[in-house]
Simulated assay, not measured.
Amino acid sequence: MAKYPMLTAIGAVAVLSLTACTAPSPMNPPSSPTSESPTSSSPTESSAPASATPEELTQRVEKFGIVLMLPEGWSIEPGEYCEGDCNENEYGQWDIRDANGEHAMYFAANSATSPDGDTNLYQRTILTKQPAPNLKYKPTSQFAEYWVSEDQEDGERSAGLDIALVDDEVLAKRGEAPDISYFQLNDRQAPMFGVLHDYVEEIAADGEELSEEQAQKFLSSSDYATLEAILLSLRQADQ
């Protein structure tokens, strides 16, 4: 998949027809990846350890019918795949940058499209999972998942950490095939919201591929706690 998650990503190899948006999805990462054999560990229903303190979320952003909270110094700009009024309409995309200007997260208002032709096999291990209580339409969770990908042609393997929001039913059905981490705000809008794999690798492994041990350690950091708090702040504007 592309270097974007989102988000995990978000699951099947065939194109999902949840949206009319025809632009390529920047969120198809190894993003909701993972699965070579469905041998996931039992998810834990807890957030980051109490010792990890997130940055205070002081900025309120409202657009696309949702409200999102961000720390001081963080910013949002139209996604690189957007053209014209893409950042204003219901299929808009946001690139979310941290206080250093680094591209950290993505939000796609209605872009649960496809895994962009990825045919790798994945093995997934959910490291942490908890309800997203502000999202009311369908049961949705915020999760962190370590994934290992294997190319079916040459056997090349890669790995990473997925951090995203996902519909609980979608999460439960994921197997060996590529997938997309998406959820629903209502009966027509299927967004993706997650953390870029490259961003996690930079802050957790100096730009190198993440080991599962490094991924576990990252979940105890204030950086992870902040990302988690941002994800869980998402809600519909009319709530």
Rank of each mutant, 00 (worst) to 15 (best):
N134L: 12
A144L: 00
Q142I: 15
N110P: 04
P131C: 05
P131I: 02
P139C: 00
T125D: 12
T119R: 10
Q123Y: 09
R124S: 14
N110W: 00
Q130T: 10
A144R: 00
P115T: 07
T140C: 04
K136M: 11
K138N: 08
S111F: 12
D118S: 11
Q142F: 09
D118C: 10
A144I: 04
Y122C: 09
D116L: 12
Q123P: 06
Q123E: 15
P133I: 06
N120D: 08
N120C: 13
A132V: 03
F143A: 08
N110E: 04
I126A: 06
E145V: 07
L121H: 15
N110Y: 00
L121K: 14
K138W: 05
P131G: 04
K138I: 07
S141Y: 09
A108T: 07
P131L: 04
S114A: 10
A108W: 15
Y146G: 02
A108L: 12
D116R: 08
F143C: 08
T113A: 12
L135C: 04
A112Q: 04
Q142C: 14
N134K: 12
A112S: 04
L135N: 00
P131V: 02
Q130V: 09
S111N: 12
A144D: 06
Y146P: 01
I126W: 03
L121A: 11
Y122W: 12
K129M: 13
N134Q: 13
Q130W: 10
P139K: 05
